[in-house]
Simulated scan of single mutants.
Amino acid sequence: MSDRKRVGDSDASKHQVTGSAPGVSAENNDGGYNAGIAVFSYIIGGIIVWSLIGWGLDYLWGTRWFVLAGALLGAVGGFYLSHMHGLTSTRKNAGDRPAASGPSKDGKH
């Protein structure tokens, strides 16, 4: 996802919208509450959706284990999405900003 930012034209609207997760502000003034709700939504939503898909496959094929596999897949997928949106990282560096991830800019370790 790209980091889209939109700044209002007037001085009264100083909220920025980023391309991270829905409901998570750029300043993180909410202390992680919105991030926690987003993580919870991703995981529970994934479990529900993939369990229903598994239930449908169980119904069609006469099996009984796809619903469990769907629930596990949904939980893992929800956690993966929340991790990719940067909601599960708690690492901070000196500037109280999230620590950089990935290779360094100079190409060394």
Rank of each mutant, 00 (worst) to 15 (best):
H85K: 13
V17E: 12
S25D: 13
A12N: 10
Y80V: 08
A26Y: 14
H83L: 09
L87T: 06
A69C: 10
G95A: 15
G23Q: 05
S25W: 00
K14M: 10
T63E: 12
T88S: 05
W61N: 12
F66C: 06
A99N: 03
I48P: 00
G54V: 07
M84E: 14
G77R: 02
G62H: 05
I37N: 01
K92S: 09
V39Q: 02
T88C: 10
A26P: 00
F79W: 11
G23Y: 06
L52D: 00
A38M: 07
Y80G: 06
S2P: 04
S89Y: 04
N34I: 01
D11H: 13
L60W: 08
R4M: 11
N93P: 00
G23S: 07
S41E: 02
A12P: 00
N34W: 07
S10G: 12
G32F: 04
G70Q: 02
S10R: 12
A71C: 08
W55D: 03
L57Y: 13
N34V: 00
A75L: 14
R64C: 03
L72G: 13
G54M: 03
G95P: 00
N29D: 15
S51W: 06
V24Y: 06
G95R: 14
P22K: 11
S2F: 10
K14W: 12
A38P: 01
D11R: 09
A21V: 01
R4C: 08
G45N: 05
N93D: 15
A69R: 04
Q16D: 09
M84I: 09
Y59D: 09
S25C: 05
H15F: 11
G56P: 00
M84W: 04
S10C: 08
R64K: 15
R6E: 15
G31Y: 03
W61K: 10
T88D: 02
K5P: 03
Y42F: 12
R97S: 11
A38D: 04
D106P: 02
G74A: 06
S41I: 08
S101T: 15
D3A: 12
S51G: 11
K5Q: 14
L87E: 01
L57R: 03
L73S: 13
G95T: 13
A100Q: 10
N34K: 07
A94C: 02
G107H: 07
P22A: 14
N34M: 12
P103N: 13
G54I: 04
S104D: 10
D30F: 07
W50V: 01
P103Y: 11
L52Q: 06
S51Q: 03
S25Y: 04
S101K: 12
T18D: 14
R6F: 14
G31W: 06
R91Q: 14
N28Y: 08
Y80Q: 07
A99L: 11
R4N: 13
G23M: 03
G77I: 02
G31R: 06
L60C: 06
A71H: 01
M1T: 12
N93C: 07
T90F: 15
W61H: 10
